[in-house]
Amino acid sequence: MQRVNMIMAESPGLITICLLGYLLSAECTVFLDHENANKILNRPKRYNSGKLEEFVQGNLERECMEEKCSFEEAREVFENTERTTEFWKQYVDGDQCESNPCLNGGSCKDDINSYECWCPFGFEGKNCELDVTCNIKNGRCEQFCKNSADNKVVCSCTEGYRLAENQKSCEPAVPFPCGRVSVSQTSKLTRAETVFPDVDYVNSTEAETILDNITQSTQSFNDFTRVVGGEDAKPGQFPWQVVLNGKVDAFCGGSIVNEKWIVTAAHCVETGVKITVVAGEHNIEETEHTEQKRNVIRIIPHHNYNAAINKYNHDIALLELDEPLVLNSYVTPICIADKEYTNIFLKFGSGYVSGWGRVFHKGRSALVLQYLRVPLVDRATCLRSTKFTIYNNMFCAGFHEGGRDSCQGDSGGPHVTEVEGTSFLTGIISWGEECAMKGKYGIYTKVSRYVNWIKEKTKLT
């Protein structure tokens, strides 16, 4: 034993070699072989497995989906700052455009905790909710729209109204504003409101030439003092309507412009014939205590009207009353817009006519005020429907199939267009061939041609 100890002390290297040989010859039971080890760690190889990531292109799944990435790591994937920024906006807080917040056709661009709407022409605001041009839906104005110097929408209202708090709607500024039905039992019968379409306001006024200088022999019209197929109006439903009495009662109609003036057809009036105007009328054979009678003290036909040349060209006249009318729910003026808007309103496509005229061709006159909704007829169809001249200051309205029309005794009465609950004068009943005849239409004086003249002559002093 002493000898062994001496050998170990003198030859430590020998001992180490012996131990190493023993270990190498022993069977290893701690580690699995290569094949079995792979069965336990069965993990798919990654895209760049075996390579240094710093030297390969980034992978979106590896960089940002398996674990949260930084902007720089995302930049490695896209290799483009702009594309990385677009991805980053949604990656950080989701897609803010998912709810489609942009209105009126706006395009949404996502941002971090926010979004941006790219608005089409005519709109602005956070969600493109603000109209900035009158060309689109009248700028959301209830009545009139004008573009300011910086191309912003400025709404306005006709006389007797003021802008509401929203700067879009119009509200009454006087007790009985024009064009409004205020009798409670008839307010439910107000005709369907007309909503502004998209309009090209630059070209809204037709490029028409008034044929002022045409000389033409007097034409022989049949029954051209021209509501057939209409309905009984309720008291106060058309408070701007008046009836004219002269040699015979209810020979023509008219509309209240203001307390002192009536507008009617020029062919209705004769110099030297006494005319009485009755406002607030409903049943011409009954006294309903809503009527107001006034005498006409002055007749002003349009300066281009000449019955000797043509009885229905420039067929418009103004009547001055001896005493002002007292405005109330049964006696209310009709609204008159400017030339541009009167023309736009007419193009809405349908209007209402009213009167006490004959209820059928050569038949009896109506006792109760009649009204009828009539569609506008395109000019080409209008011209083809008659052998008589249709001037540019006239328009056609009615039904091709016949059966409904204005008729004798309705002449001078109103053709009105309702705009968001307020009625505007767009025409004056003038003439036609018979009444409600198939293929024939009622012919009306186009008020847009005469609004400046009306307003100039009827100013209240």
Rank of each mutant, 00 (worst) to 15 (best):
S204V: 06
V153W: 09
Q408Y: 10
C141H: 00
C117A: 02
V296E: 00
N166H: 03
V56T: 14
C178P: 00
H400M: 11
K137S: 08
T417M: 04
L460K: 15
P333K: 04
N100S: 10
S406Q: 11
G94W: 05
F251H: 06
L19Q: 01
T158C: 04
G351L: 02
S385M: 05
C155V: 00
K387V: 11
A26G: 05
S114E: 11
T386L: 12
E231Y: 04
K168M: 12
T276Q: 05
S329K: 11
E281S: 04
I334C: 01
N283G: 08
E434K: 13
C382I: 03
D378E: 11
Q237T: 08
E35A: 10
T225Y: 10
F360S: 06
M6P: 04
Y352V: 08
K455W: 05
D223Q: 10
G272M: 11
P44R: 03
N113W: 04
F399Q: 15
L369R: 11
S156C: 04
V30Q: 12
E61D: 09
P120K: 04
M6R: 11
L14K: 02
R358Q: 06
L318C: 02
C407G: 04
R364Y: 06
L460Y: 15
L211F: 09
G254H: 01
S448Q: 06
T389R: 10
P414E: 06
M8I: 07
Y91V: 15
T422K: 08
N5F: 14
C155N: 00
A380I: 13
K234R: 09
S204Q: 03
S430D: 02
G363Q: 07
E208S: 08
K339I: 09
P120R: 08
K311I: 11
P197M: 10
W88Q: 15
K260N: 05
E165L: 07
P175M: 07
N42D: 13
F224H: 07
E72F: 15
G230P: 12
V228C: 13
A149K: 08
S25A: 05
G106I: 02
N138W: 12
A9K: 04
D378I: 03
E288K: 10
I300A: 02
L372I: 10
A397Q: 02
G58A: 09
F388P: 14
V154M: 08
N5Y: 08
G21N: 09
H302R: 02
L32N: 10
C102W: 01
D223L: 12
T342Y: 03
V202R: 11
K362R: 10
N283Q: 10
T81S: 09
I7S: 05
P44I: 06
F71R: 15
I300C: 03
D405A: 04
N36G: 08
H415D: 01
S350V: 13
S255W: 00
T422V: 09
T186R: 08
E340R: 14
M6W: 11
K68Q: 15
V273W: 12
F121T: 15
H303R: 07
V153S: 11
S148T: 12
S220G: 09
T461N: 14
V30E: 08
P324S: 07
K126H: 04
L189M: 06
D198Y: 10
S329W: 06
S11T: 06
Y330E: 05
T16V: 07
V248A: 04
F221D: 10
H415F: 15
L41Y: 13
D405Q: 14
N258E: 02
R3S: 08
T85S: 06
G439I: 02
F71I: 14
E66K: 09
K438H: 14
H400C: 10
K438M: 04
F87P: 15
D405S: 12
V242C: 03
S187A: 07
V30I: 07
L19K: 01
E401P: 14
K188L: 05
L372F: 04
I443L: 10
K438A: 04
K234P: 06
Y91H: 14
H303G: 10
V374A: 10
Y441V: 13
I15F: 04
H289M: 10
G413A: 14
N393W: 11
I454T: 01
K188Y: 11
N245H: 06
T264M: 02
C335V: 00
N295C: 03
N48E: 15
N222W: 07
N304A: 09
T85N: 07
E67C: 06
V377G: 03
T158K: 02
N393F: 04
C382P: 02
S350I: 09
E98Q: 11
K137R: 09
S148Q: 13
D150R: 06
G439V: 03
W431E: 13
N138F: 05
D410H: 15
V4G: 11
L318F: 01
V278E: 03
G412P: 06
V257M: 02
L383D: 14
